[in-house]
């Protein structure tokens, strides 16, 4: 199984722990991730300002994947939605739109055929690898852990572009994947709420308040960690956790792990190989709850 790995902007600069753990888990499961050096921003961060430019960026990336004859595997949920939306639009709607996009790609010597599939890493795990095969790679029992999962928004929405993957109102895929590790998945209020990341450049107080609401709920529910699948959600909950604690006079100390880090631990992979030393909220105490 072979995919072009789309890293986007946030991961190479701010979430190398996610990248490392995804690569290690992929290796363990026999997934081949191909690096395409020429990939650029997916366009999501400028969609609110100039949607057409954003779509051009997505189309350029899709064209590169198409040129390599590969499906796209994304790690960031915002990249997933931006790229999938454009793949969906250009693949199923009128051909004039594809022609318009290609006229702009022309000067770069590349054309898009309109036929590239984009899927998030977790979706590929569910759909192409399957829970049973993943279970066979699990060597450690993480039943000592209480895990809260955060789906975020664009892993599931807008649902009309995701071809029936999971259910936006009652999603289950992350619970299914985390449960493979033996960990207990716990529920908490506001599970489907947004991390606030997209408004960080607009109004920091609103963005941090949104993140705080979730950290409050997860902390209150007694979770040992928050597990997620998007680097920007992690910026909000892990990267900004200390800032939220200071700003609002609260205290969480809540480790935030990527799904791939949690799966990697259950696969017996080394803590450092999974980039756990790069998580902002320290994970050392958490490790004591995991068998040697």
């Amino acid at each position: 199984m072979k995919y072009a790995l789309f890293l986007g902007c946030t991961i190479p600069a701010r979430a190398r722990n996610y990248e490392l753990s995804a690569r290690r888990v992929a290796e363990t499961l026999g997934i081949e991730l191909i690096d395409v050096e020429r990939f650029v921003c997916c366009g999501f961060p400028i969609k609110s300002s100039k949607q057409f430019s954003a779509e051009l960026l997505s189309a350029y990336n899709l064209a590169l994947a198409s040129e390599a004859g590969l499906e796209l595997c994304t790690l960031c949920s915002s990249c997933t939605s931006a790229l999938t939306e454009v793949a969906h639009e250009l693949g199923y709607k009128d051909e004039s739109q594809l022609a318009a996009v290609n006229s702009h790609l022309g000067p770069l010597g590349i054309q898009y055929s309109g036929r590239v599939t984009v899927r998030h890493f977790a979706r590929i795990l569910i759909e192409d690898i399957g829970l049973e095969r993943i279970r066979k790679s699990i060597t450690k029992d993480l039943s000592g852990l209480r895990v809260a999962v955060h789906y975020g928004c664009h892993y599931l929405k807008p649902s009309d572009i995701y071809g029936g993957f999971d259910q936006p109102e009652e999603p289950t895929t992350l619970e299914e994947l985390v449960s493979l590790t033996g960990a207990e998945v716990i529920d908490y209020p506001g599970k489907k709420k947004c991390c606030g990341g997209p408004v960080l450049p607009v109004d920091e107080r609103v963005a941090l308040s949104l993140a705080k609401e979730k950290l409050d709920a997860v902390h209150e529910a007694g979770a040992d960690l928050l597990c997620l699948v998007c680097p920007f959600c992690s910026v909000m909950y892990d990267g900004n956790q200390k800032g939220i604690e200071n700003e609002f006079g609260v205290n969480y100390g809540l480790p935030v792990l990527y799904l791939t880090q949690l799966l990697g631990l259950a696969m017996g992979l080394d803590r450092k190989a999974l980039g756990l030393n790069m998580n902002v909220v320290k994970t050392k105490d958490l490790m004591k709850k995991i068998p040697e």
Binding site: C153, H154, K157, K192, C194, P198, V199, V202, D203, V206
Partner: peptide
């Protein structure tokens, strides 16, 4: 202030 979370649209 809209985060484009799509809750409303869904």
């Amino acid at each position: 202030l809209c985060t484009s979370c799509y809750s409303c649209q869904e």
